Amino acid sequence: MRYIAPPRDSVAPEVFARWPLYGWREYAAWMQSTYWPSIDELNAVRPTGQRERFVAQTLELLNDGLHYEQRIAERGEIATREANWHDLFNAMAWLRYPMLKRALNVRQMADIAVMGPRERSRAQYALTHFDEAGVIVTLRDRSLLDLWNEHDWYGLFWRERTAWMDGRATVQVFGHALLEHALTPGKLLVGKALACMASDDEGDAVAACAQGIEAGRLLCDPLELRPLPLAGLPGWHPESDMETFHLHTPCYQPRRDGRAYPASLLL
């Protein structure tokens, strides 16, 4: 069933004080004010030198005959629906992670050139899944990856609960649909993750993932993406601080027979 975001004036205030939306609090005014930010307001805070800009998605724009990704690549125009949660969060992702967004666009355009604008490759599905629900997880403890590989969610999120608070495991939410779904209190969020392994604090996971995506080393198939039940992270769900949640929550799915994941990206 397609998710329908709640109206702006009916969003529960507590969702903005809980992850993942709390992690985007620099945009709190856009999320929590009584008014929607304008296209001009979005453009006013673009990173210095960013070519891409937000444009209102009007009927006239849609009649230009271009694919959404083509407008970005050829004209630097990000079609944006005004007064729309999904597109607001997409704009926020462009503002925080322009390198990742640009890498996805480069890859989408490469496949559109081969497949045409109506057909989609497995790589395009992977790129879209990451764009909508992507997270980047950086680990500094190999045992955590072993638990994740086996879908040992109790071990990963309860026995190793402190790992998600002491820096051995960090999560960066990229997918704008995840942020939209977080508007519903108590929703069991599951991200589609790229895993990175770091030996120190020097590695830049976002830059490494963007480079890997643009070069075609990452996101060639949807099965590369690992499910990560974000609801299990400390503070991400109202009940995640209770052991019983990690024993019975339906978002903890077992690993399917034969399911394997690619090696983590080394930073």
Rank of each mutant, 00 (worst) to 15 (best):
L61G: 05
L61I: 04
L62F: 05
D64T: 12
D64I: 10
G65R: 06
G65Q: 09
G65C: 10
H67N: 06
H67E: 09
Y68G: 11
Y68L: 12
Q70V: 01
Q70E: 14
Q70F: 00
Q70M: 02
R71A: 01
R71M: 09
R71E: 01
R71H: 05
I72T: 03
I72C: 05
A73E: 15
A73M: 11
E74L: 09
E77L: 13
E77F: 04
I78A: 09
A79F: 00
A79S: 09
A79L: 01
A79H: 00
T80N: 08
E82I: 15
E82T: 15
N84T: 01
N84I: 00
H86C: 13
H86M: 10
L88E: 11
L88P: 03
F89V: 09
A91N: 01
M92P: 00
A93T: 14
A93H: 04
A93F: 08
L95Q: 07
L95P: 08
L95F: 09
L95S: 09
L95D: 06
L95I: 14
R96E: 15
R96M: 11
Y97I: 08
M99C: 14
M99F: 09
M99A: 15
M99K: 14
M99E: 15
K101L: 03
R102P: 05
R102M: 08
A103G: 02
A103F: 04
L104V: 05
L104H: 08
R107W: 02
M109V: 11
M109D: 14
M109F: 07
A110M: 07
A110T: 05
A110K: 08
A110P: 05
D111H: 05
A113P: 00
A113Y: 06
V114L: 15
V114P: 00
M115S: 11
